[in-house]
Amino acid sequence: MANPTTARIRFGVIGAGAIGAIHMETLNKLADVAELKAVTDTYLPLAEQRATEYNIPVTHASPEALLADPELDAVVIAVPNQFHAPLTIAALEAGKHVILEKPMAIDSAKAKEIVDVQERTGKTLIIAQQMRFSGLARAVKAVIDEGKLGRIYNVKSGWIRKKGIPGWGSWFTRKELAGGGPLIDIGVHMIDLALHFMGGPRPVSVFGTTYAEFGPHKRGTGNWGTPNWEGTYDVEDLATALIKLDNGATLALDVSWAAHAADMSDEPFIHLMGSEGGISYVGNTAKFITHVDNEVVTTEIAPLDDSNERELLARHFIQSIQDGTTPISSAISGYTNNRILDAIYESSETGNQVKLNWN
């Protein structure tokens, strides 16, 4: 295996679907630090197609064959959620560093298994929460880190898509493969980014509810993914929750794939309220608000730059390998997100608040 401090990191990609292709395109843009050398997929013709598209020299017949390849230092895992844990564990135990697509796992028990193996092997693992790396998100975090918000005590986060159910009847809408609907798909982004802005407090209790008003009737479908109209839809299409954190703050979450939501933006949003100021982050804009001489003053927050967020995530991952440091989107952060997701689903099923023990 190459010495990561002196050579480019050599990557393989497991999963040649749409997300896998995005990672391939990203890695090919990082030729100074990365080399894309292998790909595999359960549908081998698709892997061969991607190999041609992205100039990948080796197409492996299986994930097992790819993970046994001594010419690879790291792998990207971009497969349905059900397979995140077994493939990540196998990769770590094979001595590979891992970029793992979100969510970390289909549930928190599987996420905890990944955490345990990552800690035992010492390999670098990053969860692909690329929203943390956008120029605007980094600018917002810089304002927060300067202390301009004071104590952040209340946050509202979400992503309300009005007509965006992906791949109706495919793995996206099957609970056994995906683990859930918009909550585990896009909600995990909003939980992750909100907690990142808040400084990483731990959740201590969760109350939530999920609904399925569109998907079971084949309504509200979007353009992502390939539908299978003979398939199954047994996940939610909207989720709402209130999360209490160990520092006393609260995080409210609302996400949907489909909803009759008039006058609500389709863009992801986070509204941070602090003792000294607040930030409203919606889509590609952000504003800082505070009181000066008893008057409300609002100023725009400009992105730090226009760098590609996925390229920055990959560079951060590679730098973490070289430095032996923990990525900011770490295994523990992914596990925390999974615990919140599980608690929301449990709360919806039972109608009760779910308390989380971190001992």
Rank of each mutant, 00 (worst) to 15 (best):
L341N: 07
N81I: 11
N284R: 14
F214C: 11
G20I: 11
E295M: 09
G208T: 08
E300R: 04
S256V: 05
A252C: 08
M131S: 14
L183G: 04
K29W: 00
M198R: 13
Q353E: 06
H97N: 08
R8P: 02
A74L: 08
K96H: 05
P57F: 09
M104D: 12
A259T: 10
A241D: 14
D41V: 03
L251F: 06
K175P: 03
K162V: 01
I301S: 09
Q319H: 00
G150W: 04
V255F: 04
F83S: 13
G220Q: 08
E300Y: 04
V354E: 08
A109M: 10
V354D: 03
I144D: 04
F197H: 08
I243R: 07
T6C: 00
I186S: 12
Q319F: 01
N3D: 07
E25C: 01
G15C: 12
N337H: 09
A74P: 06
G208Q: 09
T26Q: 07
I340F: 03
K112N: 11
E113C: 05
D323G: 05
N28K: 15
A18G: 12
K355Y: 11
G278P: 10
R151C: 12
I186A: 12
N81F: 08
G283Q: 00
L72C: 08
W224F: 15
A65K: 12
V143L: 07
W224V: 15
L30D: 02
I77E: 07
Y281N: 12
N154C: 15
L183F: 13
M131V: 13
I89N: 11
A258F: 08
I321S: 03
L312C: 06
G324T: 05
F172W: 12
V188W: 00
I126R: 04
I321K: 02
H316V: 01
H196I: 07
V296M: 14
